[in-house]
Write a protein that binds this DNA or RNA. Sequence first.
DNA 1: TTCTCTTGACGAAACGTTTAGCTAATCGTT
DNA 2: AACGATTAGCTAAACGTTTCGTCAAGAGAA
Lengths: 334, 334
Amino acid sequence: MATMKDVARLAGVSIATVSASLSGASFVSPELKERVLAAIDELGFAPNAMASGLKSGKSALIGLILPDITNPFYTQFVHDVQRRAAAAGRTVILGVSDDDARSEAKLIRLMRSHRAAGTIILPSGSEGDCSKLAGYADDMPLVAVDNAPTGIGLDTVVMDNRLAAELATEHILSFGHQSAAIVAGPSHRFVSRERHYGFEATLERHGITPLTEHMRRGDFHVEEACKVGLELLGLANRPTAIFVSNNQMLIGVMQAVAVAGLSVPRDISIAAIDDFPWAVAFSPALTTVRQPIDAMAAAALGFLTDRIAGSTAEPQRIMLRPELVVRQSCAPPR
Amino acid sequence: MATMKDVARLAGVSIATVSASLSGASFVSPELKERVLAAIDELGFAPNAMASGLKSGKSALIGLILPDITNPFYTQFVHDVQRRAAAAGRTVILGVSDDDARSEAKLIRLMRSHRAAGTIILPSGSEGDCSKLAGYADDMPLVAVDNAPTGIGLDTVVMDNRLAAELATEHILSFGHQSAAIVAGPSHRFVSRERHYGFEATLERHGITPLTEHMRRGDFHVEEACKVGLELLGLANRPTAIFVSNNQMLIGVMQAVAVAGLSVPRDISIAAIDDFPWAVAFSPALTTVRQPIDAMAAAALGFLTDRIAGSTAEPQRIMLRPELVVRQSCAPPR
DNA sequence: TTCTCTTGACGAAACGTTTAGCTAATCGTT
DNA sequence: AACGATTAGCTAAACGTTTCGTCAAGAGAA
């Protein structure tokens, strides 16, 4: 592949001039610049980012580490981060942790190896796992998003998960339900504990003590939630409403509803955290709590930009507000 | 950040020995190797991929260029490519073209700049656009997937789109529908023309001449398909079945069905190309044609691996078979 | 005229690796 | 004992950029 040397020879200038023409760092006469550009075009020259990164110590790469791209919440986050990064002339490199805290450590090291200018991680682990993250990053800027507890020594961006659960639960109760069931997420995760807390606190505020058989736990994935949903729907004292803690488990619960031959919201009301494109395609369309995904992406990249620019401020935390998207999956109990 | 020099000093060996310990290229005594590893661990050393790539001329980066990550078909493709790439010690770097052929050219150049070992592109353009792609790639291996016409001078991986449309259409007709409507994709795209062709050919084989007002075209996106779906459902001679050409448009059509207050499959049967996780959560669950996404990812990476290894064979094409996933969204007409 | 400044371009060192070529030590043959 | 082979490790030269310091030519001042 053509190098600056080739370009320089063809344009009859020095390598330094080619570099200057491209970077615009120092002045080059219009005449020479034109010759250089013509040579670049003719040779199809593309500057070697490895060489330039090595010499300059700067990198256009942004690492993005998350548990699983196929979850629409993560998908949308990747989309937003990539769009904003590209607009800033940066390129996203992907690491998938598969919900495994140990591979997160490896992936951070991988990003370090590629000399990513900074990395955004969506941790999958417990608080203990998360607090080790900063140590792996060494001097690479690292910001934790979504499942990020406080006090882990990193800039963090989170949604107000308690509020999100409250919004959904209040909405359910506003239809006059005497109580509600929950399909919660794994208890070691910060986000699911927060959502669980928000749910319970809301019931409590309404003077409701939920039945223990209505408090179920999933693993944030489809199959388990479907099983749990079936159990819930098969109960003698079947709940009249269910709060589901994330989108994957909502798939499972909706599948359970279909299998049980029940109708939403006639037989059962449903509200979940995580909005997603398909929610409008259901009949009735599904009521969800929308996470401010793009704002989270923007905040994360903002932190990264500051750190890349050299900020040594104390780690900060941004908490963003969710938004209830009312559709038709909740109604008064029969 | 620590370099090999630091490691070498701490371990009391030369840089070359550190390099050898890591690469395993030449023999290093167990004793020294251990000292080196200990030093690496102590310093948290992560080898500089830019330096190593520059010197060796090899890269662990794989470029992946696609129109839009949020479409579940692409999402799953990213997932599968990334998983297989990671298993092979490679890292995926992302380029999103936003359905714009001009930005595809830029993104290919970007991947060249990063010295990606090879790049997979899912072109969004017309045949004319696609045939220019090979020129942009210069000497970087490039394979085109999905919307890839023949004869563009690149290794290509496609699904048999005609067959996919046939499968769905035959399934619809097997319930005794007299005809069917189609919501087709944009006509400049190879894939949508193929699907359209498969649909029409199947009707023809059954001696059916479709009504022109039942032949609609969307743009592979939600809103337009919803509008088109509403038109179709509002027709005096409303179709009894609709074939939808991709998953995004299926969202739109399902939304239209919900708005129109119709019931699937009682009032209307629906089958679409592209399976997706939510299909099972609908009641009734949606019948779709599944693309062999993981096999496509494997084939694309296979081509890339061969080219990276230096193969100069003629460009090849692999066409994979789709699979009909029968669920409950099709039934006999009323 | 001579000196200093400015301007536009260049030469060369350095970034952190890989790797070819070398050296010194060890070993088995003869 | 002397020889080449083999082995374990080292030295140093790249890779393709960026960037600092240099330089020649011309302008302005003394």
